[in-house]
């Protein structure tokens, strides 16, 4: 089974290289895997733009995603708990959130640039918007689905409101919260490139790197950048999966 996981990937790579080597797809349309590897190497040692090395782009993007994501986590979970636990809070806030939720984060770019200027803050805001709603919605539904039995047990044993929140509602909705967290992280990472299109003053960021490569028509570097984004996303998802499995070992 472990081996099978690599079969599809390897077959795809071989097909890709074959198409390029046989000249079926022109080099102006698609860089071959070998070229992408070379591009990746160049990104790592020479940088794009020159002197702006790959690992700094990666770190900068991770910082952006991390900040936006943590912002969403620390606002989404408490608000979701409030929304799930209080009927009146839900009545007031739900229509507001339901109004903003369908607006794509990217549609906010003009406003966020206007408000926060071009650069880090604006990009974090866009990522935050993408990551916020899945966490909010999942936390809220998690709390609403906590069985009355669990709450009743705590009440009969003399639990205070605070105990019910911290020792029943929060742990009981953890599976749902973590599902939201994983969706959010995926969206945050996807929003990243677009967020960095808003412009980056410092000249770092994977999205910025790809845009620069586009301006120079370096197809190999564009695709290498995409591969890096894909790999990091995969790694983050893997880590979150591990964490979720540990925290939910009781299931």
């Amino acid at each position: 089974m472990r081996l099978l996981r690599w079969v599809g990937l390897l077959a795809g790579l071989m097909l890709w290289q074959g198409l390029c080597s046989a000249g079926i797809v022109g080099s102006a349309m698609l860089a071959s895997p070998a070229q992408v590897c070379a591009g990746l190497w160049e990104l790592a040692v020479r940088g794009m733009p020159p002197e702006f090395l790959l690992h700094k782009h990666v770190l900068h993007s991770l910082l952006l995603v991390g900040t936006g994501f943590l912002g969403a986590l620390f606002t989404g979970v408490p608000l979701g708990l409030l929304l799930g636990g209080s009927r009146s809070a839900r009545a007031v806030l739900e229509p507001v959130f339901e109004f903003f939720r369908p607006v794509p984060p990217l549609a906010w770019i003009p406003l966020s640039v206007l408000w926060l200027g071009i650069g880090f803050k604006s990009a974090v805001f866009i990522i935050f918007l993408g990551a916020f709603f899945p966490i909010l919605v999942n936390t809220c539904s998690g709390v609403r689905n906590v069985s009355a039995g669990c709450i009743g047990v705590a009440e009969v044993l003399g639990a205070s409101r605070r105990d019910i929140w911290l020792k029943v509602l929060l742990p009981a909705s953890l599976p749902s919260i973590l599902a939201g967290v994983r969706i959010s992280m995926g969206i945050a990472w996807m929003t990243l490139v677009a967020a960095e299109f808003t412009g980056v003053q410092q000249g770092y960021g994977l999205g910025y790197m790809i845009m620069t490569a586009r301006d120079l028509q370096r197809l190999d570097m564009i695709m290498a950048g995409m591969a890096v984004i894909g790999l990091i996303g995969l790694a983050i998802e893997h880590c979150l999966g591990r964490i979720a499995r540990y925290l939910l070992r009781w299931r």
Binding site: G149, C150, G152, A172
Partner: peptide, 16 residues
């Protein structure tokens, strides 16, 4: 609440 014990039909142990 807190003075009277209740054991109910459905199993309501906290699963975590």
């Amino acid at each position: 609440l807190g003075r009277v014990g209740l054991v109910s039909q459905e199993v309501d142990l906290l699963p975590w």
